[in-house]
Write a protein that binds this DNA or RNA. Structure first.
Lengths: 109, 109
DNA sequence: GCCTTAGTTCCATCAAATTCGAACTAATGG
DNA sequence: CCATTAGTTCGAATTTGATGGAACTAAGGC
């Protein structure tokens, strides 16, 4: 099934991971994968053209952030959480926890 | 002393921080600042021209990673660890811990 | 006031990333 | 075999970022 190339955990490079995460589209994909466990490329395209989305997935794969598996005609993506955490402990967790806004110190009551 | 502009912690943007850290030169600066506590721009230039170094410090400042204070003719830089950790808990620690090699599972014996 | 030091700003250049259309490939169904 | 679906690869246009030289600014010292 022409499984695409994924780096081993020992080949992960911090700068590459950080760069992959420094883009809004990709960060959104990663967050959604973290929330949903797995998803196809198409389910995460946000209305963008296929070639653009494919490019972002490639960056994420090359950095070691996601693993893509082929199921028939669909490509399923998952976060490589365990391997990432082994190589860069706490990093992904911190990025995912960082989450949302810029002014969150605003409780309503 | 024309104190240069630093964003408030609430203005920190995750993508900007990750982008700032995704460059080797800047990551080196951040690591050295983490190790030494504080340093002037010149002490961290690594032999690069001043304009280049100044550019990198600006990126780091704009992202909220470092604070630059003017002492006479010298600009002293420190990591904004507390504020960073308040806004993105564990992130900087994870990046600094990530540290070193790519194939560290290589004990000699 | 003039010189030096430390860094910034301006400008141009070159390299790397992002975007997206169009053509291609792989798997499935009739 | 032909059509469809899901995604990749190619190629080009645009944007963003890195680098570094030259001129500038701010603080001190003489």
């Amino acid at each position: 099934m022409a499984a695409m190339k994924h780096p081993e955990a020992s080949e992960f490079r911090l700068e590459k991971v950080l760069h992959a995460l420094s883009d809004g589209v990709r960060l959104g994909i990663v967050r959604q994968l973290a929330a949903e466990g797995e998803a196809s490329c198409g389910a995460l395209d946000g209305g963008r053209p296929k070639s653009t989305v494919s490019h972002h997935f490639r960056v994420l794969r090359d950095a070691g952030l996601v693993r893509t598996t082929t199921f028939g005609v669909t490509h399923m993506n998952t976060l490589r959480r365990i391997e990432l955490d082994a190589r860069f402990p706490g990093l992904l967790a911190a990025v995912l926890a960082a989450g949302e806004g810029g002014s969150e110190g605003d409780p309503p009551g």
